[in-house]
Design a protein around this nucleic acid. Structure first.
Length: 251
DNA sequence: AACAGAGCCAACCGCAGAGAG
DNA sequence: ACTCTCTGCGGTTGGCTCTGT
């Protein structure tokens, strides 16, 4: 599926990311934010270029990302905005929360484009080409396997630290509500695989905690403890009840 | 069962724009 | 005004997986 890992002449690693690299990058970005992608791999102990780190974070590790399972509504939005904006994938991605430009672009090329082409030739296209098509104009085929909305967040999901001491060491009034909401959204997004996903989230969070992740000194100058980039933690559900999480995570 | 071709998607590359000095 | 650095975007590619023969 992806390029095999290899090192270029400058000793920079390319190709598929390992789980360990993902954890390093995730931990670093959550801890320090990403003010300088070029410096980031050096500080995070990764043999990657900054560009590769940014891409990995933006397209895979970022919280609240959805992978696959496009709903009919999402596909309609993509088609609509593509007709409106053209190949401005980043703009289209802004209209679909949780989707990345890369993901949308891939989905367009592998699924939607050919369906439009089919409809051009009068064959079994899923959607009509015009932007102002109506519900009744869509073919019945489009209703089916992909209409179900499971907002799976894969192994990139993470949760707020389980240890209350660790949590308390952070400036909770600043970050905790939105972070908890984020954790909760992760859990509620797990769908049928909830138990397994929660377990893996839990595992990842434990690794952060045991490595003194939340309370250790920062490497970057002028950053205070737990100075986590607010933009990374912002999530529209604030004020979520912590007890909702306690049950699932056995806090 | 083995093979070939197509499909899919993560990751790379090159370029352009923004901002700092 | 110019240059340099960094970031973000869109196009493209490598290679794994799926499907058909």
């Amino acid at each position: 599926m992806v390029r095999s890992p290899f090192y270029d002449k400058n000793g920079v690693k390319k190709g598929a990311w390992s789980r360990e690299e993902d954890e390093k990058l995730r931990a670093f970005v959550l801890r320090h934010g990403h003010t300088n992608w070029r410096q980031l791999p050096k500080l995070a102990g990764l043999a990657r270029c900054g560009k590769s780190c940014r891409l990995r974070w933006m397209n895979y590790l970022r919280p609240n990302l959805k992978h696959g399972n496009y709903t009919q509504e999402e596909e309609e939005l993509i088609i609509k905005y593509h007709q409106l904006l053209g190949n401005k994938w980043s703009l289209i991605a802004e209209k679909l929360p949780g989707r990345t430009d890369n993901d949308i672009k891939n989905h367009w090329h592998s699924h939607l484009k050919k369906n439009l082409n089919h409809s051009d030739t009068g064959k079994e296209g899923k959607y009509l080409k015009t932007a102002d098509y109506t519900e009744s104009e869509r073919t019945s085929e489009s209703v089916g396997s992909e209409s179900e909305s499971h907002h799976h967040i894969l192994e990139s999901s993470w949760v707020w630290p389980a240890s209350s001491e660790t949590r308390d060491s952070c400036t909770q009034e600043k970050h905790s509500d939105s972070s908890v909401a984020l954790a909760q959204s992760t859990i509620t997004s797990c769908g049928e695989d909830q138990d397994a996903s929660v377990a893996s989230c839990w595992e990842a969070s434990q690794e952060f905690i045991t490595s003194d992740f939340w309370s250790g000194p920062f490497l970057v100058e002028n950053t205070s403890t737990c100075d986590i980039s607010p933009q990374m933690f912002w999530y529209p559900y604030v004020g979520t009840d912590l007890s909702d999480l306690h049950g699932l995570l056995d806090w």
